[in-house]
Structures are given as structure tokens and as C-alpha cells.
Simulated scan of single mutants.
Amino acid sequence: MAHKILLIGGHGKVSQLLTPLLLARSWSVTSMIRSPEQKATIEQLGQGQPGKLDVLISSVEDVKSKGDAQKILDQVKPDWVVWSAGAGGRGGAPRTMAIDRDAAISFTKASIHTPSIKKFLTVSYISSRRSRPSWWSDQDWELAQKVNNEILPTYYNAKVAADEVLTVLAKERFDDEAKKGIPEKERFCGISLRPGTLTTEKAGGVMMGKITCQGKVSRETVAQAIAVVLETEGARGWVDMLDGDEDVDAAVKRLVKDGVDSVEGEDFEAMKDGASKL
């Protein structure tokens, strides 16, 4: 099936690696970028590809509400949405919260409440969680706490809030569709892809699932993983990933087959309470 994807943050490094992979699958991509100066760079990514590439110039900083996001979704009419935007540390704490939390949540809510959209994938990071998972070592937890509370506290607060809204609303829609008798393979998929420290290395294998949080991962591998997760039936939930030895395609299929979701260990009721306030 030829899917239509809205890629938010299309000029980002991961997105530029991802765009040709999506187009190579004969999917249509609308790459949302913030300025006209970026357009030529994005258009080059579509050359010689079977899929159709459109460029939408619209800054995520202008998205202040679910209604603002809905206008863009109504214009593009995607069936899948990928969030790969971020403040990137520029503009201080207010800009990080405005983009990585508020705009991300606005698109999340609008997408999940649009019946024609079947998948929403956000690119988060591996330490974006409030509780210590059972498979992390003491050193893992100490490192995550240092990153989240000392090194990147604003980014952490923004990302974990957006992840939790996605998790809560995706489950609500999934459960509602189950009650309506919709087959599981046709129900909504909310996905938080959670890489470690990003590098410029060539793509390779992965560790994926219930893994340590200590490690790096190539942006090329992350782009490959996004494409594979999107095309794999039943892939949903939190997907932690680092560089490793397993083939990306095999790793994703294994997670789906075994029902692995790295959200395990989080307090869903607390998540739900927090999400209701955003």
C-alpha cells in the first residue's frame, strides 16, 4: 500500500537520511520544514525515487495548539505522521518547551484524534522515562538521572511529557478500536523510537528492546529503524535502540513477535494523570 507520510522536522539530520528510505518504498512524503532556504536541500532527496516528495514550509514554532496542528493535518491528509523535530538546544528553555513538548503534544493529540491517521511515530531518546526499568543496572539509572536532571533537564521534561501523552492517547484509541471490533492489525499504532547518543557513523546492526541506556547509535541506523518500524505490522509502543549486532529488520520483527515494549515499568496511572493536564 502506498502510504502518505507527514515528516515533521524534515530538515533534521535523521529526517534527511530517512526521507529517501521512505520514498524508496514508493510512499509519499510531505517534508515539513521551517524556512524556504531549506527547500532545495530537501527536494534533492526525492530525485530518482519512486515515491512522491512534497515540501511544506511551516514552522513548528507556530503550532501553539491542537487546532493549529489539525490545520496542517487537514492540508496534508497523511495516514502516518513522523515527529522528528526539535529545538536542538537553540533558543533556551522556553523554545525547547514550546517545540519539544507543546508542539509535539499538539501534533500527537491532533493525529490520534484523526481517524484516517493510523500511525504516529515520535523520535525520542532512550532515557526519557520517570521510573527505573527492571533491566537497567545501577550504573544505567545513575547515568540516566545525571542526563535528565543535570545535563538536559529541560529537554528531558519536554520529551518525557510528549512521550507520555502519546502513550496514554494511543492506548485509549487502541482500546476503543478494539471495543468496536476493529482487527488488531488495523488499530492505531503509537510509537516512541528511543535511540541512544546519535553519531555520524555508517549504518549497522542494533540492540533493540529491553537494553542498557549506555551507548550510541548511528543516525543512519535510526533512519533505517524508523522505516522498518513503520512498515512492520504490529510494531508499537516504546522501542529502545543502540548500535549492536542484530539486523534492524530482524530486531523489529522479534520485538513484535515477543510483545516487547520498553514502556514496561512506567506508572501508567501517573502517566494518565499527567497527560490529562497537558
Results as ranks from 00 to 15, higher is better:
residue 255 L to T: 04
residue 71 K to L: 11
residue 45 L to V: 04
residue 109 K to W: 02
residue 257 K to N: 09
residue 106 S to R: 09
residue 149 N to Q: 03
residue 50 P to D: 13
residue 64 K to N: 13
residue 177 E to C: 06
residue 15 S to V: 03
residue 20 P to K: 14
residue 164 E to D: 11
residue 64 K to C: 08
residue 247 D to F: 00
residue 118 K to S: 11
residue 270 A to I: 06
residue 269 E to T: 05
residue 45 L to Y: 04
residue 85 A to T: 13
residue 186 E to L: 13
residue 18 L to F: 00
residue 128 S to E: 03
residue 73 L to M: 15
residue 208 M to L: 12
residue 70 Q to L: 15
residue 132 R to I: 04
residue 220 E to S: 05
residue 61 E to I: 15
residue 180 K to M: 09
residue 79 D to E: 04
residue 33 I to C: 08
residue 2 A to W: 00
residue 145 Q to S: 14
residue 107 F to M: 07
residue 108 T to R: 00
residue 102 D to V: 11
residue 31 S to Y: 12
residue 56 L to R: 12
residue 219 R to K: 07
residue 118 K to C: 06
residue 66 K to I: 02
residue 118 K to D: 05
residue 206 V to Q: 13
residue 180 K to R: 15
residue 93 A to S: 13
residue 20 P to D: 14
residue 30 T to F: 01
residue 200 T to E: 11
residue 250 A to E: 09
residue 101 R to T: 03
residue 126 I to H: 06
residue 169 L to E: 11
residue 99 I to D: 05
residue 27 W to I: 01
residue 59 S to M: 15
residue 79 D to G: 04
residue 50 P to C: 13
residue 193 L to T: 14
residue 252 V to M: 08
residue 151 I to Y: 09
residue 29 V to D: 03
residue 153 P to R: 11
residue 256 V to E: 07
residue 32 M to L: 11
residue 19 T to F: 00
residue 166 L to T: 06
residue 261 D to F: 10
residue 28 S to K: 05
residue 187 R to F: 06
residue 60 V to S: 12
residue 191 I to K: 07
residue 200 T to W: 02
residue 169 L to H: 06
residue 82 V to H: 08
residue 169 L to S: 07
residue 204 G to C: 12
residue 26 S to V: 02
residue 259 G to D: 07
residue 278 L to Y: 09
residue 194 R to F: 12
residue 111 S to Y: 10
residue 159 K to H: 03
residue 73 L to Q: 15
residue 69 A to H: 07
residue 44 Q to E: 08
residue 200 T to Q: 09
residue 223 A to G: 02
residue 14 V to F: 01
residue 108 T to G: 01
residue 216 K to M: 02
residue 33 I to H: 07
residue 116 S to D: 13
residue 111 S to W: 08
residue 55 V to K: 15
residue 12 G to T: 01
residue 177 E to H: 09
residue 184 E to H: 06
residue 72 I to K: 12
residue 270 A to P: 03
residue 106 S to N: 13
residue 183 P to H: 10
residue 53 L to T: 15
residue 98 A to M: 02
residue 9 G to R: 00
residue 170 A to P: 07
residue 111 S to Q: 13
residue 198 L to C: 11
residue 147 V to W: 08
residue 159 K to P: 01
residue 225 A to Y: 06
residue 262 S to W: 10
residue 272 K to D: 05
residue 55 V to S: 15
residue 115 P to D: 11
residue 23 L to C: 02
residue 37 E to Q: 12
residue 210 K to G: 02
residue 125 Y to K: 13
residue 122 T to I: 04
residue 107 F to Q: 06
residue 278 L to A: 11
residue 186 E to S: 15
residue 98 A to Q: 05
residue 112 I to Y: 05
residue 44 Q to W: 02
residue 1 M to A: 08
residue 56 L to Y: 13
residue 197 T to R: 15
residue 250 A to M: 05
residue 222 V to I: 04
residue 82 V to L: 14
residue 103 A to P: 12
residue 200 T to R: 10
residue 181 G to Y: 02
residue 118 K to H: 11
residue 278 L to P: 03
residue 167 T to R: 10
residue 75 Q to D: 14
residue 218 S to M: 06
residue 200 T to V: 03
residue 128 S to F: 13
